[in-house]
């Protein structure tokens, strides 16, 4: 695309990535979560594709598929952590340590170090959605830009 689009994309891309990371990280406190933040970051990948052409994303195709597998495996492993009780039992909640702080009942300002396995699952699913939607976007771009019919 033209130099205007490329310049604006260069300015806008870090902001969009940071916002996607924020939405994923605060999934247990504010509206949002893994799926929504992953969709935001995947739209940033679509912006890269539009602005810089499909050749700029071609070398990341294997990385994206590896990230998708990593996200899926991390999600299942996080579900299996609670297998002494039930599948998907939240064993990390309220016991201290990583994300183990308990919340006071009722409305509160929101504390990041709470909710047990939920933030970790948010990151796993976010990684999976970023990789999945990103590879769909990259595949469409590569297939369309090859030649004309």
């Amino acid at each position: 695309m033209s130099v205007v689009v490329r310049t604006i994309a260069r300015i806008l891309l870090p902001i969009v990535f940071a916002f996607g990371g924020y939405v994923i990280m605060h999934g247990h406190l504010t509206p949002g979560g893994g799926f929504q933040g992953g969709a935001v970051v995947a739209s940033a990948l679509a912006l890269v594709l539009v602005a810089f052409g499909e050749a700029s994303l071609k070398k990341y195709k294997d990385l994206l598929s590896a990230l998708e597998s990593l996200g899926g495996v991390a999600f299942v492993v996080l579900g299996l952590i609670g297998i002494p009780f039930t599948f998907f039992a939240n064993v990390l909640a309220g016991v201290g340590g990583l994300f183990g702080q308990s919340v006071p009942p009722g409305p509160n300002p929101g504390y990041l170090n709470t909710a047990g396995t939920l933030p970790l699952m948010n990151w796993a699913v976010g990684l999976k959605v970023i990789a999945g939607l990103g590879s769909v976007v990259v595949l469409f771009g590569l297939f369309g830009g090859e030649d004309d019919r």
Binding site: H28, L29, G33, N90, A93, S102, G110, T114, A115, L118
Partner: peptide, 29 residues
């Protein structure tokens, strides 16, 4: 807030109470 220690009830339902649904959704994706 007592069981999952999360503020967001929707996220708690998606990832804790109905984790199987989310697993199937990830499979579909």
């Amino acid at each position: 807030q007592a069981e999952v220690a999360a503020n967001n009830v929707v996220t708690a339902v998606v990832f804790d109470y109905r984790g199987y649904d989310t697993l199937g959704e990830a499979t579909v994706l």
